[in-house]
C-alpha cells in the first residue's frame, strides 16, 4: 500500500509552520535549516484568526507539472505525485505555473521544492492537522 499526506482537520492549524521546517529537515543526509527546501506551506487567510490553509502536492494521477517540464526533471511517482531530478532541472519555473493550487514552491536558486509524500512532517504537527494515511494504488 502507498501512503499519502492528508489534511485531517484544517481548523486546528495554529500557523506554527513546524511542517515547513520539518520538510526542509527531512533528508537524513542533507537536513536543511530554514524553509527553502520545504514542499509544504502553511498560510493564513489574511490573519490566522480567520483560519489557515496548508498547501502541498495533491499527488495527481496526471500531474500537469510533469507535462510542462521541458527537461523531464519532474517524473511521476508510483501511486501519484512527482519526484524531482534536481540535476536535470533548469529552473525555468513552468511547473509553478502549471500547478492549479500553487503547490510547487520556488527555491532560492529558482528550482522547485515539492512534497514527495514521505510523511516526515506529520510527526511534527503538534495539533494533528496533518495525517499520513494509506491509499489505494
Amino acid at each position: 500500500m502507498v501512503k499519502q499526506l492528508f489534511i485531517k482537520d484544517i481548523e486546528k492549524c495554529v500557523g506554527c509552520s513546524l511542517c515547513m521546517y520539518a520538510c526542509s529537515r527531512r533528508r537524513p543526509r542533507n537536513p536543511e535549516i530554514g524553509i527553502d527546501a520545504s514542499g509544504i506551506l502553511a498560510a493564513s487567510l489574511s490573519g490566522f484568526e480567520r483560519g489557515a490553509t496548508v498547501i502541498f502536492c495533491r499527488a495527481c494521477k496526471e500531474p500537469p507539472c510533469v507535462q510542462v517540464c521541458p527537461t523531464d526533471a519532474l517524473v511521476p511517482k508510483k501511486g501519484g505525485g512527482v519526484i524531482l531530478k534536481e540535476k536535470a532541472c533548469i529552473a525555468c519555473g513552468m511547473c509553478f505555473e502549471a500547478c492549479t493550487i500553487g503547490a510547487i514552491f520556488e527555491r532560492r536558486n529558482g528550482k522547485p521544492a515539492v512534497c514527495i509524500h514521505c510523511g516526515y512532517c506529520v510527526d511534527y504537527c503538534p495539533h494533528e492537522v496533518l495525517a499520513y494515511v494509506e491509499v489505494e494504488e
Partner: peptide, 15 residues
C-alpha cells in the same frame, strides 16, 4: 521575507 538554506555542521546530531 526570504528563503534560507543551510546545512548544519553535524547533520545527524542536528536532527
Amino acid at each position: 521575507h526570504g528563503k534560507l538554506s543551510k546545512i548544519p555542521d553535524n547533520r545527524k546530531g542536528y536532527r
